[in-house]
Design a protein around this nucleic acid. Structure first.
Lengths: 206, 206
DNA sequence: ACGTAAACGGACAAGGTTGTCCGCTAGGTC
DNA sequence: GACCTAGCGGACAACCTTGTCCGTTTACGT
């Protein structure tokens, strides 16, 4: 006997559409738990299975996928919340001559805290429009500080915005495969030291 | 009816043990074809399925696995052949004051040509003893040039061998996700420019 | 020529991941 | 307190990858 076709009779995996603050309480809690779990898991690695996120959040896979239709959507949400913080910092530092270096440092700190996410962002950057927009946003926020730093004579004149992304990628690469935040933080410090001064000895120090 | 147990009656996937130059001609050709295919595929990405290697080499999967029992063994072989070249270069440059920079440049070129392999090497470094030994070998080859460069006053005094690996990882990171050799080569050039001089403006250039 | 063992190749089992389906539970409202 | 629907959860199909198995082919010594 053929099973009755019940398609459409149940909500199924209909994605959650309401804004997060209008959700039913249990849904809101689950959403938060999922984001927390994802943040913890994506901190150390980009290789996180969706079922791990669900388990850690204490929800079923169905719930996870209803809130975030795929891994990219989940990552995008985490990334957005990072960008918000970055925008605030940029606003606070606006005008300061060393704002550029403060923001650069903050980008590195971002990788220290969410290494896996940074990897994911890089990998998906070609395919995911949302991530591209975030990238563009960071560009905008850095353009002013970059100009100011050059004007103040504390930054090489030939450094471009593209170079900043390059430096970001360099920092991320240096943190590849490290086991935890502490190790990444240590490496980030050293990378900044190296990058700022360069490794070549200035011609004559006397 | 139970199938007769034929285990051991056929050579099966018995690994090839003879030295490569004593193999039967078809086996030697296949081995070479596999290595060529792997080199091409690992050039752009670490995410290469073994069956792709087999297909590209024009051999069956069984053949591939008999020559190289797993992906690590295949990667190790490629890596070894790179190391041989690096050793030759180190020998040729021995004593030259700028040997350190030449070798550093060569490491970057290695990533440009075999990016996927570099990623793999980094990722497996904790688990694979063979890779660890290669790393150690590079360390040995760089120690002298590093000392000489400092003595010649063309390298910051506080740069350590660990920093060299860090710089290597930075370069690799900067090349993440780039589509081809050409793009990687361009990035490698810029990274070297940035790393050598640093991005901070020297106090007073006057 | 010819026989033997080395080598081949592709089917396949095992393991793991993604995203969907659908029967049930329980929050919020009247 | 009862209803109704948003939301839950976990089984599962589909897919991919790794490494093994075993019947067949072929290089090479005699």
């Amino acid at each position: 006997m053929a099973r009755t076709d019940l398609s459409g009779c149940y909500p199924g995996a209909v994605p959650v559409t309401a804004p997060p603050d209008q959700l039913r309480r249990d849904a809101r809690d689950n959403r938060a738990a999922i984001l927390d779990a994802a943040r913890e898991l994506f901190a150390d690695s980009a290789d996180v299975a969706m079922c791990q996120v669900a388990r850690r959040a204490g929800v079923g896979q169905g719930t996870l996928y209803r809130h975030f239709p795929n891994r990219s959507a989940l990552a995008a949400e985490l990334l957005d919340s990072y960008i918000v913080g970055f925008e605030e910092l940029a606003a606070a530092e606006a005008g300061a001559p060393d704002a550029f270096f403060v923001l650069l440092r903050s980008l590195f700190d971002g990788v220290v805290d969410l290494y896996g996410l940074a990897v994911l962002a890089r990998h998906d950057v070609e395919t995911d429009t949302h991530l591209k927009r975030n990238r563009e946003r960071i560009r905008e926020l850095l353009a002013g500080p970059l100009r100011d730093a050059k004007k103040a004579g504390i930054l090489r004149r030939d450094v471009s915005l593209d170079d900043v992304f390059l430096i970001f990628a360099m920092g991320r690469g240096a943190m590849d495969g490290l086991p935890d935040r502490a190790a990444r933080a240590a490496v980030a410090d050293r990378v900044i030291e190296l990058i700022l001064d360069g490794i070549e000895q200035p011609a004559a120090v006397a």
